[in-house]
């Protein structure tokens, strides 16, 4: 997957858990939870949606590495296509 595809996957996943947010309008460098009203269950659902789209399961210890949209895309880019 290209970076653009990964970014689209991240934004679509975010739109799925927070339908009232406009993911395209978010600052990709700021923490997602500071900009969108999501709780820990929504965040889990977000990661489930990301995993469905990209095949990448973000382990719990790496949650801090996917806190912004940019960070999330970079993280996925480093792992997509690897065997789970």
């Amino acid at each position: 997957m290209t970076d653009a595809e990964l970014r689209a996957a991240v934004l679509d996943s975010l739109a799925e858990v927070a339908p009232e947010a406009d993911p395209g309008a978010l600052d990709p460098a700021r923490p997602i939870i500071d900009q969108v009203d999501i709780d820990s269950m929504d965040f889990l659902d977000f990661l489930v949606a990301v995993a469905e789209r990209t095949g990448v399961e973000v382990p719990e210890r790496d949650y801090a590495a996917v806190d912004t949209i940019d960070a999330c895309v970079a993280y996925l880019a480093g792992r997509v296509g690897e065997p789970a």
């Binding site: 820990s40 269950m41 889990l44 489930v48 995993a51």
Partner: peptide, 9 residues
């Protein structure tokens, strides 16, 4: 996998 993880709740 993410889908089966537990939350403190």
């Amino acid at each position: 996998p993410v889908a089966r993880r537990l939350l403190p709740a």
